[in-house]
Design a protein around this nucleic acid. Structure first.
Length: 931
RNA sequence: GCUCGGGUGGUGGAACUGGUAGACACGCAGGACUUAAAAUCCUGUGACCCUUAAAGGUCGUGCGGGUUCGAUUCCCGCCCCGAGUACCA
């Protein structure tokens, strides 16, 4: 039979499903291996050709690991809560659950067609109540915990209550709100229940807080910082404003340092780790209090250069700083007010664009340098951000360029502080070299010497202390949305209480419309009779998109039968699978999903529910597949109107034209299918063409893959035409996995031809199975063992594209050798299996093996003996330039090789009578003659 | 600005620790088979020069230097493209 990929692929997909070929158990003699993909959000558009790239790579890896004798967990599911389904619901009135279900069905059909070896019995959907029950449960654990800095881990809130009862608030080191009270154990016991709860909320790992949030009126919701880009919402591009609201927050800051430390223990791409480090933004320095010259109070600043404190010539506080009003003197009032008004007008965007222009205003007040009593003017300026540190900085113009520019602009003094500073009249010099000058008691010291002296002095004076500052802020956890997990909380006397664990899941109630209520409450406010115990208000916001994805890899560990148990995943399963060995997904989740997941994982570990500190041991980012748009060029007449004539790309510069996107699916190798083009749009029905060499060549541009650009390629179409095995191989063949690249179908024929050629190795000209039982020759074994080793090496370093090339070389060689020997082909089938599972399953059975056993065969053992050569064609170079090859026995030693080479008549000819100055011989590598 | 990637034929890309640059594939050109086309197979294909041909030569991995017998690979300086991030004190 010819290579009938359609029948054959359908047949095997059905076989795998019916026989549960890829179902995996939570125990095995074999070592475990967990291969995870970032699960998709099931959008209405279905999969395009870019989505499966990572899935194909992970599937190859999973299949390879099975062949290598591992018990492989390789699951898939859906991140099925999210905004698009809700937007669609608002427009159409259809319940998001229904459209989500439909989209999932499309995704499943598309995924199944590609031949993935997922264990579908472990599928998860974040919007399924049996799943979000446990998302809610984790929320409850966070609510019931506090972060004990002494133990450096999260603990049950009961341990905090015990300490309050025993010794009051004294000596408690916790990550908590700033406004916690000081009380004795007696005072604690005297407090009302209400008061106690209020106090405890300041310690809980998820807590209510009035926060300034990114409010998007158009979407009717609050957005996380990473959902806002350039002052507008990432999704939809609507304006975002700052608004104060009571919000659920997650105390991720408690884990800032552990999240940073952990990065050194995991095998992730360096750029991604760097992004997380920047996001966490740890800086080591000191906080210093500058007392006010007049009246009570002080201004606290954070600085990483406390050593420059004697160079401070002014303080700058953010325009939003709480002291601005009280510091402003009558004389400066007008100036300050007009400056604040001016900054308020500027959007976030303008502020960034304006980075170079210096602006600010003097408050009229002074503070005192705590170390020498110097009078220091206090200014406001918008280059100081209210949200970072204390919203106030000490300005050292000689050491900081921004301060320097500010000083120049407003004529403030610049004091040199280190003798190594260069010309500080020209610009600031932030050096730490040299010895201090103009710096009182640290004069003459070096940077290293000065820091401890200063810190000690500041502490003595009570004017400051060493401090570590983080950029990361607590994550806002509430969304004023419908299609998300309800928060398992009700309110009594204005304070939040958890519902009982036995009452989980708290189901998402039905509502009439998916919009906020008239009074501006979230959509859940529309639910009728939705009250806890018919009495108390439920929390009306829902959880953000990242909640469900922050722990899903644990749910996969629970097998289908274990899902019924009353736990998110059985302890035995967690102890068996432990963590994800390989995680593949896009780098766009660097500071969202991947940070929150690490946070929840550490929290679950602290409470003893999971065993590993880090959830994802190794991570690979697959590159983005961009679209490759094609264009036709319509000729424009003198009046500037479009004509009905289209000119080929190479001739377009001879005319006035406009470029029009054309559907890439009617273009092949950049040549337009004219008939299909005429049917593309009615207006083109009578189109005329100016061709070059009989063809219409289209223009090309790389853009995002999107419907409006007519450059979306659907995997279904590729599979229909070439089959899934070709799609899988081709996606890998396209280039290195981690590199972004435009999708281009131009080379796919080559991969398809390769599979046909491979098929032919097993068949004669009449397509009858034709195998030989003879012993393989040396050349055949060499070809086979080259590929055995190559694929092993390639897969281990995630270089899938190079294996595909090597398969082609191997099949070319075997075709040349007319090799149809079972002993060679059987091993080759196993090696190719992970890449092209359908064709290999078919051939595996044709070879006489039990159907379905290929997936669990053993990867052939590489034998280096077959690759041993006794001769090597040495490249002979003269002055480093390759001239010729000479076959020389590998048993010869360099001295003999040198003699042999120099005696050779062709070499003599190249030397042209000159005597070599030096001959470099590297055995088995190269000979270089220097003349 | 800072951080991280990346610049190799007409195209996608290969070259793993410094050792034959351009594997493999697409495209293109020519040929075989065919009434013809598709499919398939064969040959050639970095640029330039020389030559009837065989052969040979020069240049060539973004640019300029350096180290080395030898550099796409290592070092220094610069240019360009992409991604992330940003008055972070």
């Amino acid at each position: 039979m010819d290579y009938q990929f359609r029948d054959l692929e359908k047949k095997w997909q059905q076989f795998w499903a019916e026989n549960r070929t890829y179902k995996v158990e939570n125990s095995s003699e074999k070592p475990k291996y967990y291969v995870l993909d970032m699960f998709p959000y099931p959008s209405g558009a279905g999969l395009h050709v870019g989505h499966p790239l990572g899935y194909i790579a992970s599937d190859i890896f999973a299949r390879y690991k099975r062949l290598k004798g591992f018990n492989v967990l390789h699951p898939m599911g859906y991140d099925s809560f999210g905004l698009p389904a809700e937007q669609y619901a608002i427009q159409t009135g259809q319940h998001p659950a229904i459209t989500t279900e439909q989209n999932i069905n499309t995704y499943r059909r598309q995924l199944d067609q590609i031949g993935f070896s997922f264990d579908w019995s472990r599928e998860v959907r974040t919007s399924d109540p049996s799943y979000y029950k446990w998302t809610q449960w984790i929320f409850m654990q966070l609510f019931s915990s506090w972060y004990n800095l002494e133990a450096d881990k999260a603990e049950r809130i009961e341990t905090l209550v015990e300490r309050f009862e025993k010794t009051g608030s004294a000596g408690i080191k916790a990550v908590c709100d700033e406004d916690t009270l000081n009380f004795t154990s007696e005072e604690w016991k005297q407090m009302s229940e209400q008061k106690q709860q209020e106090e405890l909320l300041k310690y809980r790992l998820t807590y209510l807080k009035e926060s300034t949030v990114n409010w998007c009126a158009a979407l009717g919701t609050v957005l996380a910082n990473d959902e806002v880009k350039d002052g507008v919402s990432e999704r939809g591009g609507y304006p975002v404003e700052q608004k104060k609201m009571m919000q659920w927050s997650m105390r991720i800051t408690a884990y800032a340092d552990r999240l940073l430390q952990g990065l050194d223990t995991i095998d992730w791409p360096e750029p991604l780790k760097e992004m997380q480090r920047n996001w966490i933004g740890k800086s080591t320095g000191a906080s210093v209090k500058f007392p006010l010259e007049k009246g009570e109070g002080e201004i606290e600043v954070f600085t990483t250069r406390v050593d420059t404190i004697f160079g401070v010539t002014f303080l700058v506080i953010a325009p939003e700083h709480e002291l601005v009003a009280s510091l402003t003197t009558a004389g400066q009032k007008q100036e300050i007010e007009s400056y604040i008004a001016q900054t308020k007008k500027k959007s976030e965007l303008d502020r960034m664009a304006d980075a170079k222009t210096v602006s600010g205003a003097f408050t009229g007040s002074y503070a005192l340098n705590p170390l020498n009593g110097q009078k220091i003017p206090v200014w406001i300026a918008d280059y100081v951000l209210a949200g970072y540190g204390t919203g106030a900085v000490m300005a050292v113009p000689s050491g900081d360029q921004r301060d320097w520019l500010f000083a120049r602009h407003f004529n403030l003094p610049v004091i040199q502080i280190l003798d190594a500073q260069k010309d500080i009249e020209a610009e600031a010099d932030a050096t730490k070299e040299g010895r201090y000058v103009n710096s009182d008691f640290i004069d003459g010291l070096t940077y290293q010497e000065a820091i401890p002296v200063l810190i000690q002095k500041l502490e003595e004076l009570g004017a400051g202390k060493a401090k570590i500052q983080y950029r990361i802020r607590d994550a806002i956890f509430g969304r004023q949305r419908y299609w998300g997990e309800p928060v398992p909380v009700y309110f009594k006397d204005g304070l939040p209480y958890l519902i009982e664990e036995s009452e989980l899941p708290l189901l998402l109630p039905e509502i009439d419309k998916y919009l906020p209520t008239e009074s501006g409450e979230p959509p859940l406010g529309r639910a009728e009779n939705w009250k806890y115990q018919d009495e108390y208000e439920y929390e009306l916001s829902t959880m953000p998109g990242w909640a469900g994805s922050s722990w899903y890899w644990y749910r996969y560990m629970a097998s289908q039968s274990e899902r019924a148990e009353d736990v998110f995943a059985p302890q035995s399963a967690i102890e068996y699978w432990k963590d994800v060995d390989l995680y593949i997904g896009g780098s766009e989740h660097a500071t969202g999903h991947l940070l929150y997941s690490r946070f929840w994982n550490k929290f679950l570990k602290d409470l003893g529910y999971v065993v590993e500190e880090e959830p994802f041991k190794k991570l690979i980012n697959q590159g983005m597949i961009q679209g490759r748009s094609n264009f036709v060029y319509r000729i424009i007449d003198e009046e500037g109107k479009g004509t009905n004539t289209f000119v080929s790309f190479g001739l377009k510069d001879e005319y006035k034209t406009s470029a029009i996107h054309v559907d890439v699916n009617i273009v092949e190798n950049d040549v337009l299918d004219l008939e299909k083009f005429k049917k593309f749009r009615p207006e083109f029905a009578n189109a005329e063409f100016i061709l070059e060499s009989g063809k219409y060549v289209c223009g090309v541009e790389v853009e995002k893959m999107s419907k409006s650009k007519f450059n979306v390629v659907n995997p279904d179409d590729i599979i229909e035409r070439y089959g899934a095995d070709t799609l899988r191989l081709y996606e890998m063949f396209l280039g290195p996995l981690e590199q972004s690249k435009p999708w281009n179908t131009n080379g796919i024929e080559g991969v398809f031809k390769f599979l046909r050629k491979f098929w032919k190795l097993f068949h004669n000209d009449k397509f009858e199975l034709n195998l030989s039982e003879e012993e393989p020759t040396k050349a055949e074994l060499k070809s086979l063992h080259k590929i055995i080793r190559k694929v092993e090496d390639d897969i281990e370093r995630f270089s899938f594209n190079t294996s595909v090339s090597s398969f082609m070389i191997c099949v070319n060689e075997l075709t040349e050798l007319k090799c149809n020997k079972r002993k060679v082909l059987e091993d080759l089938v196993i090696v190719l299996g992970p890449y092209a599972p359908h064709i290999t399953e078919e051939l595996w059975t044709l070879l006489g093996n039990q159907p379905g056993t290929l997936s669990y065969a053993s990867y052939p053992k590489f034998n280096p003996d077959y690759l041993v050569e006794d001769e090597f064609a040495y490249p002979i170079s003269i002055n480093g330039k390759m001239k010729m090859n000479l076959s020389i026995s590998l048993s010869l030693e360099p001295a003999d090789i040198e003699r042999f080479v120099l005696e050779n008549s062709d070499v003599q000819r190249y030397l042209d009578g000159k005597t070599p100055k030096k001959v470099v011989v590297v055995k088995g590598r190269i000979v270089n003659i220097v003349v």
